[in-house]
Write a protein that binds this DNA or RNA. Structure first.
Length: 612
RNA sequence: GCCGCUGUAGCUCAGUUGGUAGAGCGGCGCUUUCGUAAAGCGUAGGUCUCCGGUUCGAUUCCGGACAGCGGCUCCA
């Protein structure tokens, strides 16, 4: 089956869903019912009546009835004014809005419509759009299956019998046309495939995704927790989770310390004046956590980002062109008052830790700086085993951007040159730049093919000016530096959620909170265990950075070997060393990893671990 | 924030059509020293998320709060 057929099938199922709902609740008012990834949905307004998953069996039964009856999908056309009458007579106010938009503007796409006009009826006697350039619609098509009629562009399958395998998956609230000022409808989601096997496969995949959900693994592997007393969106990291955080943070820092970054430290609260000067207050004011001082009248806030703070370190001394670039680095936690309904796991939190850095440089230094940052990002994600793709986000011709056009043009060229010389897979997109400068966004693909936004490198032509940052050039003149923002991990919390799901909790050796566990078979080998511990204590490892404290434990409890293996495996500990009398006699260790088991001579153990 | 669903032991869950609850795992104790994913026996854990209301009586019904989950971009 090709994509078009599958699309028609899913779209037809959306209609059949609506038809079934209409049979059960004749008063239903319908919004839109498009095809989405793997399935379809239909937005439905049932007034006070609420559909829950408990109703799904009933709705699906009705749907199967419609499918088995085998009506044809019949297409017919109608002049738009007649269609508008149809919507009024059938009490379908949402369809009426769509028809009004088609008549007025020739489209129903919210993104193309003037929000204040959306859904508005044209005055009597006016036949077309108020905009001369707009091609308004004069005739619309309908599809009819059985006695269910719906405004629809199509296409559909020929007969309701031709829709393949489906399952209603969930019901969720969705605002009419995505606008929270509009009424909220009930969105009925379904998945659909050509065959039952494909549907089952898809449902199985959803189960697999659940097993690697970072919220589940975060609890099972004891990485983080949330407390009702501390609050939603404020995760607390356990010892194991903190090892992960610290290792990634120091690796990310090390990559930049290698080429001249210096660590700085800034406080977590500030006077609001800082954000009024930076311009963030106007844009992010409603996301700030406010702090009250009982000693002064200062209005304070928890910091939602770090760049304004870093500008003040730059501004603390006079700067020469010889000092540039000046590079500051800080892993630090920011606080943003996100909508409570959007919080969840480590993905969307109110306390987020950024491995943040800011370069202050001359315009001619942009390319060199970007080059080094891109090389760092590339190395980091190669170490983690994730494929990277970057988006070059440029300005478009609108006047929404600040800073000189010529500065933008050369900067965009330098960004691209750096991306090309780093051999990164990239695509360019106009109109995606920040108002203060062009940027490079990194997308990493995880083990089950999902793409996640991770690192970002952004140029900034605006904040240096707002803060009056300066340096003296070779001629003794005053110049404004350019700022380059960069976070390699992005937010550590979000990064960890991606990393946990990417690895399904089987962390690579270097970041595993517990790298090695020694499992004893009985107490007669305890002296030999001490010998092995001495080897581990002396070990120095080099990948991806040099470290000499291997994280291991000894399980010498009075339990069966089977139980010890089971537990160590449940904890996803990468290296299990099984020690019994035989190993002791042969001066060997039995090493159990995900790859299998092998015996290694004691004097080769260090080399073995160094290779991991 | 809004809509829907959910909240029972540390964890995973069962149960009570209104008469204050149970299993497995985990914990603790004893026995067992056992070579590749759970040894055996015993035992202690609960304000059934919290606050109100109805009731002789609420974990159960009603209301509210808090928290978790699925969504709120996909367009006739």
């Amino acid at each position: 089956m090709n994509d078009e057929q599958l699309h028609a099938m899913r779209h037809s199922l959306a209609h059949i869903t609506a038809a079934a709902v209409k049979r059960l609740w004749p008063e239903a008012k319908f919004g839109v019912g498009p095809v989405v990834d793997n399935g379809f949905y239909y937005d439905i307004d049932l007034g006070e009546t609420k559909i829950s998953e408990a109703n799904f069996a009933k709705i699906e039964k009705e749907m199967r009835g419609i499918i088995n009856y085998g009506d044809d999908f019949e297409r017919f056309e109608m002049p738009i004014d007649q269609a508008i009458e149809w919507a009024k007579e059938n009490n379908q106010p949402y369809k009426l809005e769509l028809l009004n938009d088609l008549k007025r503007e020739g489209t129903t796409l919210a993104s193309e419509l003037d929000a204040t006009m959306m859904g508005m009826e044209l005055p009597a006697g006016v036949s077309g759009s108020p905009h001369a350039s707009v091609q308004s619609v004069v005739e619309v098509s309908f599809y009819k299956n059985g006695n269910f009629v719906d405004l629809c562009r199509g296409p559909h399958v020929a007969n309701t019998k031709d829709v393949g395998a489906f399952k209603l998956l969930r019901v969720a609230g969705a605002y009419w046309r995505g606008n929270e000022k509009n009424p909220q409808m009930q969105r009925l989601y379904g998945v659909a495939f050509a065959t039952q096997e494909e549907l089952d496969q898809h449902l199985e995949m959803l189960e697999q995704a659940k097993l690697r959900d970072h919220r589940r693994l975060g609890k099972e592997l004891d990485i983080y927790t949330v407390s009702q007393l501390v609050g939603a969106g404020l995760p607390l990291f356990t010892p194991r989770g903190t090892i992960l955080r610290d290792l990634f943070s120091s690796y990310s820092n090390q990559l930049r310390l290698n080429f001249g970054f210096q660590k700085v430290w800034t406080p977590h609260i500030t006077k609001q004046d800082l954000y009024e000067t930076s311009g963030h207050w106007a844009k992010f004011g409603d996301e700030l956590f406010l702090v009250t001082s009982q000693e002064t009248d200062d209005k304070m806030a928890l910091k939602p980002m770090n760049c304004p703070h870093h500008t003040q370190i730059y501004a603390s001394r006079p700067r020469s062109y010889r000092d540039m670039p000046i590079r500051y680095l800080e892993t630090t936690t920011d606080y943003r008052d996100e909508k409570t309904g959007e919080l969840g796991g480590l993905n969307r939190v109110r306390s987020l830790t950024q491995d943040d850095s800011h370069v202050f440089c001359r315009p001619d230094q942009i390319e060199g700086e970007i080059n080094s940052l891109l090389a760092s990002a590339r190395e980091l994600y190669a170490t983690i085993g994730m494929n990277l793709r970057v988006r070059l986000s440029y300005r478009d011709s609108s006047d929404a951007y600040l800073g000189e056009q010529s500065l933008w043009d050369t900067a965009q060229e330098q960004l691209k040159a750096a991306v090309v010389s780093n051999e990164l897979d990239y695509f360019e997109q106009e109109g995606e730049a920040a108002f203060y400068g062009p940027k490079i966004d990194f997308m990493a693909t995880d083990a089950i093919g999902r793409e996640h936004q991770v690192a970002t490198v952004q140029l900034d032509f605006v904040q240096p000016g707002r803060f009056g940052l300066q340096y003296t050039d070779a001629e003794g003149g005053v110049q404004t530096p350019v700022m380059i923002h960069c976070a390699l991990l992005g937010s550590i919390e979000r990064f960890l959620s991606v990393f946990i799901e990417h690895t399904a909790g089987w962390f690579p050796f270097w970041v595993a909170p517990e790298q090695v566990r020694i499992l004893t078979i009985n107490d007669t080998v305890l002296d030999y265990v001490d010998t092995i511990k001495a080897v581990l204590d002396d070990l120095t490892l080099m990948k991806p950075v040099k470290y000499n404290e291997i994280r291991y434990s000894v399980d010498d409890r009075n339990e069966s070997l089977g139980k010890k293996i089971r537990e160590a495996t449940t904890w996803k500990i990468p290296v299990q060393l099984i020690i019994g009398q035989q190993d002791k006699d042969d001066q060997e260790v039995s090493i159990r990893t995900q790859a299998g088991e092998e015996k290694v001579k004691l004097d080769e153990l260090a080399t073995y671990l160094q290779k991991l």
